[in-house]
Amino acid sequence: MTLTREEAKQRTAILKQVRDQHQETVDRTRARLKDQQTVRRQICQQLRGGPKIVPEIAEATGLPAHEVLWHITAMKKYDLVVEVGQCGEYYQYAMAKETES
């Protein structure tokens, strides 16, 4: 759907107003998002080298294994990472095709 210029302007104004009202939670969430991006970058770097299990990623990045698992779980849910089989007691994960570039 295409918006008229007026509608788009109004939308931006509302968003700005709501952002001002929620400044504190917006700031906190932005900080959280920055952390998320830093961790994701490290995980993706590892997965570009080929499929890995969680302890391998944790060891290579220095991130706690439970945190790596949580991010892998999140990325898997939203189709950024896929499970590619099992290696002993651990599942292996790889970057999903679309994001492999």
């Binding site: 759907m1 939308r11 931006t12 929620h22 917006v26 969430t29 932005r30």
Partner: peptide, 23 residues
């Protein structure tokens, strides 16, 4: 969940039926 949102507005741009209403 507005308490955990950065209010970037991406969802509003993506919604095909204009359902998102920040007001």
């Amino acid at each position: 969940d507005i308490d955990n949102c950065i209010l970037c507005g991406k969802c509003q741009q993506a919604c095909p039926v204009e359902a998102i209403d920040f007001a």
